[in-house]
Amino acid sequence: MRELALRVDEIVSSDADAADRQTLPLLPLKVCGLTFRAGGRTLIDNLDLALGMHGITMMLGPNGAGKSLLLRLLHGLIAPSSGEISWNGVPLGHSVQERQALVFQKPVLLRRSVGENLDFALRLMGQSSQQRRDELLNRVGLLRLARQPARLLSGGEQQRLALARALAADPQVLLLDEPTASLDPASVQMIEGIVQDASRQGMRIVFVTHDIGQARRLADDVVFMHRGRVAEHAPSKDFFQSPASEAARDFLAGRIVL
């Protein structure tokens, strides 16, 4: 009987630990000497970065600068060649990853209806309920399309569904990899609105883009990347008024950055 009581205590305690881990803040983020090599090339080169607790960080830079790659590294989808990533002192792992959500540039949707795509994410979180599903769909303006096959949605609608699915996990950190690339202005505006709402509700946003206008509209701070390194990390106002690096100045002036 005593053994059973102890085991129950252990289970309760481990559940409490899990709950603690879920609510513990993921930030600040600290990245030291991060390097990623592939195919004989160094794509992320000894990169250092620190991100604070709040706001929207826009990762800006030319194509091939390593923005999307860095996002994947921060999320743990790929392993670095060397260097360290720690989220509030905790190295990357399952417990960190499940408190983040990543929205891909090209949304990957299950071969199911819009609603069922969300149900899948909610079931994973143990929160499967039609009310929650409808609430999320309403938030991204897709409630009326709940029964449509997800793959028949337009590009903008698909990306909003992917965003709703990410929000279903109620993550502390939302990583967005060029979610508005090749979308029409109305869709871009809608997605930006959802992201700003999420940020206002306390979600930390890391948003990859090469759209300068979008960065101006959304950023609290800007990480400018060039050749696999952070060329500059500054508050949005400082970055756009007086960029410190030559690469950033060229990029903002519309010149080709090699």
Partner: peptide, 14 residues
Amino acid sequence: LFLEYDELFRSMSV
């Protein structure tokens, strides 16, 4: 299909 879903599933810790 698994390759198509792989990154999503890993991202969602499925």
